[in-house]
Simulated scan of single mutants.
Amino acid sequence: MNPETTAPPLAAPAPSAHTAPAPAVRRARRRLTPARIGLYVFLLGAALFFLLPLYVMVVTSLKTMDEIRQGGIFALPHAATLEPWRLAWSGVCTGAACDGVRTGFWNSVAITVPSTILPILLGAVNGYALSFWRPRGANVLFAILMAGAFVPVQVMIYPLVRVLALAGIFGSLPAIVLVHLVFGMPVMTLLFRNYYCGVPHELFHAARIDGGGFWRIFLQVMLPMSLPVVVVAAIMQVTGVWNDYILGLVFAGRDHMPMMVQLNNVINTTTGTRQYNVNMAATILTGLVPLALYFVSGRWFVRGIAAGAVKG
Rank of each mutant, 00 (worst) to 15 (best):
S172N: 05
G137Q: 06
Y55N: 04
Y276L: 13
G253I: 07
P13R: 14
M65T: 06
L164P: 02
L122C: 15
A292Q: 03
V250I: 15
M188F: 08
F251K: 06
A165Q: 10
Y245K: 10
E4R: 07
V113W: 05
E202W: 00
H205W: 14
P114Q: 02
F192M: 10
P8G: 15
T270Y: 13
Q275R: 12
R134E: 00
G100S: 09
N2G: 04
G71E: 06
T60I: 09
S172C: 04
V177W: 05
Y196D: 02
V125K: 03
N139M: 12
Q154H: 08
F105I: 13
V125T: 12
A233S: 09
N243F: 11
A14H: 02
S90D: 12
L263P: 03
T5H: 03
Q70S: 15
T103C: 01
I284M: 15
W242L: 10
L173R: 06
S108G: 11
Q220T: 11
A307D: 11
R69S: 15
N264G: 11
Y128S: 04
M146W: 01
L219Q: 00
V177C: 03
L118D: 03
L130D: 03
K311C: 00
A307K: 10
G137S: 05
L54R: 01
Q220W: 08
A20N: 06
P114Y: 12
I235V: 11
I217T: 15
L62H: 00
R31I: 02
L87F: 08
R134H: 13
